[in-house]
Simulated assay, not measured.
Amino acid sequence: MRIQALATAAVLALTAAACSEQKSAPAAAETPAPVLTGRAAVYAAGEKDADAFVRALYARVSEPKDTPDPAEATITPGRDPLYSRTMNALIGVDDREAKRKKTAPRLDYDPICACQDAEAFALKSVTLTPESPQAATAEVVFANAGQDHRQTLKLLKEGPMWRIADVIDDKGKSLHDDLMAIAEKAPG
Results as ranks from 00 to 15, higher is better:
K23H: 14
A13E: 07
P26K: 11
A52H: 05
V54E: 09
A16E: 08
A29Q: 07
Q22N: 11
A40F: 03
F53H: 01
L36Q: 04
K48W: 02
V11D: 13
R60M: 15
S24I: 09
P26C: 11
P32Q: 07
A41L: 09
A56P: 00
F53V: 00
A7D: 04
R39P: 04
A16L: 12
A29C: 10
A50C: 06
A50K: 02
G38V: 00
A33H: 10
R55V: 09
E47F: 08
A52Y: 05
A25C: 15
Y43C: 11
A50N: 04
A44S: 01
L57C: 01
R60E: 14
L57D: 01
V42L: 06
A13K: 01
L57Y: 00
T37Y: 10
A45F: 03
Y43I: 08
E30T: 10
V54F: 05
V35C: 07
L36D: 03
A45S: 05
A16W: 11
A45Q: 08
G38E: 01
R55T: 05
A45N: 10
A40W: 03
V11Y: 02
A40H: 02
R39F: 12
T37P: 13
V11I: 13
A16R: 12
D49Y: 03
A7S: 09
F53T: 01
A9R: 13
A13W: 11
T15P: 04
A17E: 02
A56F: 00
Y58V: 11
L14R: 09
L14C: 11
A45M: 09
E30C: 15
T31P: 10
A27R: 11
V11N: 04
V42E: 12
R39M: 15
L14F: 10
A28H: 14
E47N: 13
L12T: 15
A17M: 06
A40P: 02
D51R: 13
K23T: 10
A41Q: 09
A16P: 03
A44G: 00
V61E: 06
L36G: 05
K23Q: 14
L57T: 02
P34E: 04
A59P: 08
R55I: 06
A25W: 14
L57V: 00
A10K: 13
S24M: 10
T31H: 14
A13Q: 07
K48R: 08
A52N: 05
A41E: 08
F53S: 05
A16G: 14
T8L: 15
A13I: 10
A41Y: 02
T15Q: 09
T8N: 12
A18T: 03
A56R: 00
A7K: 07
V35L: 09
A52W: 04
A9N: 05
V42A: 04
P32G: 00
K48A: 11
P34W: 03
A44V: 08
V61M: 07
A28F: 04
A33I: 15
